[in-house]
């Protein structure tokens, strides 16, 4: 007989990581019994510093995460990592290899790594990834890093749904233009240029700085017109360790600005809004497709026959939900 999710939550709150990993699976499976327990986890969470990290493929994200976490562990902070990789569009399966670049962390009791697959557009990735963050938060982790490939819309939004968002670029990928296309440069609170041991890294740093100066990312100012946060560009090298300490300090600084200014409050509201929307969207989708309700079937039938239209019908359906 499987343990009840309520029991798992009780164990989780005592820091039981086996319970944490099992709860993540159940949350991802949209298990109804577990969904009821997630509220308690959400309320128990809220202490951790959530860091979103994204960048184009090949920018060295996982290796950077491993170095970053190594650095954070030096001052004893417990770190959770949610590493998200794309699923195969053909089979829906995935090969998740981020752990390989984090082998230095595997034996560290203060680090927890969870791999997740994007599972296409219907998988409720945002909800399950952010729920996993809650779970680690409730289990007492101080920092939680969500690493995503900055390609799909969902992945970018998840990275954004954090207290501090890092966007990683690397020299020599010809990626600056691509990154703008994907719309990920704007979401950065901190820009990281990895692989700074390479000779062409200075160009990437300069490119980014020029772009920031051109106002792509406008600093948010306080009431007196003083900028609360200027988006910095930090160069790092996972090879030599250069810049890792600076990056940690910069993250801490960003965290402090957040904790102490309206910038942070606003951000928390944005995240809450995003999560509510994504969760609602998910529940709606699940309910819609799982529904055995005749109304939906009839409506669909009518639309197929062009007796009704999707616009009117959707409006009618949504009217049944009282906001």
């Amino acid at each position: 007989m499987p343990t009840s999710s309520a029991d798992l939550v009780a164990r989780l709150k005592k820091g039981d990581l086996r319970a944490a990993s099992r709860l993540m699976s159940r949350a991802e499976a949209h298990d109804d019994e577990t969904l009821n327990s997630l509220g308690a986890i959400y309320k128990a969470a809220g202490q951790a510093h959530i860091v979103g990290l994204t960048g184009v493929p090949g920018s060295g994200k996982s290796t950077l995460v491993s170095k970053l976490v190594e650095g954070m562990r030096e001052d004893g902070r417990k770190v959770g990592i949610i590493a998200i990789d794309p699923s195969s569009p053909f089979s829906g399966g995935a090969i998740l290899g981020d752990r390989i670049r984090m082998t230095n962390l595997v034996m560290d009791e203060g680090v927890f790594i969870r791999s997740m697959a994007t599972r296409g557009s219907t998988g409720g990735l945002a909800r399950s990834a952010l729920t996993s963050v809650d779970i680690l938060d409730a289990a007492g982790f101080d920092v939680i890093i969500i690493e995503t490939v900055g390609v799909g819309q969902d992945e970018v939004e998840i990275a954004k749904a954090s207290h501090s968002t890092l966007v990683v670029s690397a020299p020599g990928l010809g990626d600056d233009v691509q990154a703008i296309k994907a719309g990920i440069l704007e979401i950065a609170d901190i820009h990281v240029v990895s692989k700074c041991d390479r000779s062409d890294s200075n160009r990437t740093i300069t490119d980014l700085k020029v772009m920031l100066a051109m106002g792509i990312n406008i600093a948010i100012k306080d009431r007196d017109g003083k900028p609360l946060w200027q988006v910095p560009v930090v160069g790092t090298s996972s090879e030599t360790g250069e810049g890792i300490k600076t990056l940690i300090d910069t993250l801490d600084k960003h965290r402090n600005v957040h904790l102490n200014t309206e910038l942070g409050e606003e951000r928390l509201r944005q995240i809450a809004e995003y999560r509510t929307f994504k969760t609602a969207e998910d529940l709606l989708r699940n309910r819609f497709f799982k529904s055995t309700n005749k109304t939906i079937k009839n409506v669909v039938e009518q639309i197929a026959k062009r007796e009704s239209d999707p616009f009117t019908a959707s409006n009618d359906l949504l009217k049944k939900i009282a906001f």
């Binding site: 699923s87 195969s88 053909f90 089979s91 829906g92 399966g93 995935a94 090969i95 998740l96 290899g97 752990r99 390989i100 082998t103 595997v106 034996m107 791999s115 697959a117």
Partner: peptide, 20 residues
């Protein structure tokens, strides 16, 4: 094979210890 059959596969890489 497992990915193509729709499973999620986490690969550890080479030369791992039982503990890891």
């Amino acid at each position: 094979t497992l990915r193509d059959a729709g499973m999620d596969v986490i690969y550890t890489g080479l030369h791992r210890t039982p503990e890891e």
